[in-house]
Amino acid sequence: MSTSTLASVQSRQLQDLPKQRTLLGDAARRFARNKLALLGLAMVSILLLTAIFADFIAPYPYDAANPAKALQFPSREHWMGTDEVGRDVYSRIIYGTRISLTVGVGVMAMALLIGIPLGLLAGLAGGAVDYFIMRLVEVFTAVPALMLALLLLSVFGGGLFNVILALGVVAWLDACRLLRAQLLSLRERDFVLAARMLGATSTRIAVRHLLPNTVAPLIVAATIGIPTAIFAEAGLSFLGLGINDPIPSWGKMVGNALSYMRVYWHLGVFPTLAIAITMLGFTFFGDGLRDAFDASMNR
């Protein structure tokens, strides 16, 4: 697909704006009626707010250690206890929201930013473009992800930014492949065939019928992608790579807790819960969005 076609896609979108707005409004109304989706929205909002206002919420700084109070169980003073150097686990979880969401959202953003355009190009343009994009996808799929991340971190060193890069470099494949597969499958569905028979141009079909239909699986992929990235980071911590201390990330906290949690359960349970809540929040939210869009689309 050439850039001119892309440009025309964009101009089409602009022309279609009024229609879209009703579509969006419709979806929003549906979304508002779905209790689980609202709960998801609330959870995700709370997470985001926590991340933004961590400085005001956390009772202690995330890096203030008091070895004299190391490894305390949850108490009134320390709601989630203290870790191996006497840092307040609750405060670290709060600040960890910021770090872990940065990792999760950062990796996912990288995945979508690379994956969506490439997937669209491959699925819509076909031909040589598709061929090359698919070979590129294959190159990255064919490399063991953990090994590639380790190689990259070994070459460029650890740290938050490099961890996001090392994980993001392979995270876009799912989005790209999913989008392309969906487009291929949709191309031949009844409603597209009908549109084609009615004389719609292929760009118009792409924008009006194909694109909206690919949103749902992408949202699902994204909602799973965020906790997956948080996890992959935990895996790197398990291997001793990844984000440096004292910067708190949930994944790292879980990884560290491995040698402590048999006695000091609070070190493992709370970060795991935090990841689970994030996961649930994004899942409910994503499912809600999908349901809302789907129903509106299929009208």
Binding site: D63, A65, V85, G86, D245, P246
Partner: peptide
């Protein structure tokens, strides 16, 4: 291992 890592963290703090 875990003990020296914790010592390093405490000193850093």
């Amino acid at each position: 291992g875990p003990t020296p890592v914790a010592v390093a963290q405490a000193y850093a703090a």
